[in-house]
């Protein structure tokens, strides 16, 4: 295998993904012809971003996060308030919502980073619940359980992206860009450093890894992307309420990451597709909303029978090193392998 082969493979897979996202899926959606399907597609993409951002902090860095919906909610409410109260444009609210979520994530992370494992998990749960109580009851700002309606749609450079097809493309571009950044972070030596602190943070510290800083960084970055997802949700749905960001949503995102495989970015995205898509498919056949019970059953089944998830971390990393040519080729004892990161 030579260098040009590596490059062409990387482009093959990148091309496949981009074609799928920007050509094949929109084509299928337009064949189906119902605007409801576009909405599902947007939801799947937004949750793929949420799952990817949780993948970074829970899968790669090993910080069990039970309050991810809080940052998603901060992004959602941030965007909604910026758009309705301050009349900021769509283009401005997305990054600002992300930054707001990142700032809160940073403030949350500073005191809780010392905690390990389940104690950290419970602290994030507590913080998520606090934010939920606040959005529910700080009626003057959040309108409480009534939620906030967003008018004005999604306008970018005076072009209206509110119609299903442009909205799909807009969400797809933003989500793809964010997931790309998460991919670069988790599939690089930075990701290796995060994995080291997941495996044994004291030992990583003795290797010269600044573990507190890394935890803080990964948590903040993850918060940022959750915030962006929240802003996208607020704009595409046109309406948000506290129920969109409650504990069940945190668990839904966690289930996606666990189902796909902790530490596996393609797995997290697959998890999002399955856990958003499956209840929709079932809804087509049967009345009643079984979504949450399905999530519970799936989460339980995966933890018990397939703890590595559908696409385990090891195979995901192998795949990315080989198919995207991101690993360094090495040869020893006649054995060919790809190791490390480019």
């Amino acid at each position: 295998m030579n260098a040009s082969d590596t490059t062409s493979r990387r482009w093959l897979w990148t091309g496949l993904i981009l074609t799928g996202l920007f050509v094949i899926v929109p084509l299928l959606l337009s064949l189906a012809g119902r605007s409801y399907f576009y909405q599902i597609a947007n939801t799947i993409m937004i949750f793929a971003l949420l799952a990817a951002s949780m993948h970074l902090v829970t899968g790669v860095a090993g910080l069990l996060q039970l309050g991810h919906a809080a940052f998603y909610g901060i992004g959602g409410y941030g965007a909604a308030l910026l758009a309705t109260h301050f009349k900021l444009s769509f283009a401005a609210t997305i990054p600002l919502a992300g930054l707001m979520a990142a700032l809160i994530a940073f403030l949350v992370a500073v005191p809780t980073m010392r905690l390990v494992s389940i104690y950290f998990a419970v602290a994030t749960l507590g913080i998520g619940q606090m934010l939920h109580v606040i959005t529910l009851n700080w009626v003057a700002v959040t309108k409480g359980p009534n939620g906030i309606l967003l008018f004005g749609g999604m306008k970018l450079f005076d072009i209206d992206f509110s119609k299903p097809v442009p909205a799909y493309y807009l969400v797809a571009v933003i989500v793809a860009a964010c997931v790309y950044v998460i991919h670069r972070l988790s599939h690089s030596y930075y990701g290796n450093a995060l994995r080291a602190l997941r495996e044994d943070d004291q030992c990583a510290d003795a290797m010269g890894i600044n573990t507190p800083r890394l935890k803080l960084e990964s948590f903040t970055v993850s918060g940022f992307f959750a915030g962006v997802a929240g802003a996208l949700w607020a704009h595409t749905a046109g309406y948000i309420s506290p129920a969109d960001f409650n504990f069940n949503v945190s668990i839904l995102i966690l289930s996606m990451v666990v189902l796909g495989g902790l530490g596996s970015l393609p797995g997290s995205i697959l998890g999002a597709i399955i856990l958003i898509g499956l209840p929709e498919v079932l809804r087509e056949f049967k009345a009643g909303d079984f979504r949450n019970i399905i999530i519970g059953v799936v989460l339980f089944g995966v933890i018990l029978f397939q703890p590595r998830g559908l696409i385990g971390e090891v195979s995901a990393l192998d795949f990315i090193r080989n198919q995207f040519g991101l690993g360094r080729k090495a040869r020893s004892d006649g054995k060919q392998m790809r190791v490390g990161w480019l």
Partner: peptide, 25 residues
Amino acid sequence: SRAMREATLMSSLALSIVAREGIEL
């Protein structure tokens, strides 16, 4: 081990969802 703690935390969490949603159904 941490792995065991986190696995049981999540498995009991999953069962709690099933129980709650089951009662709700």
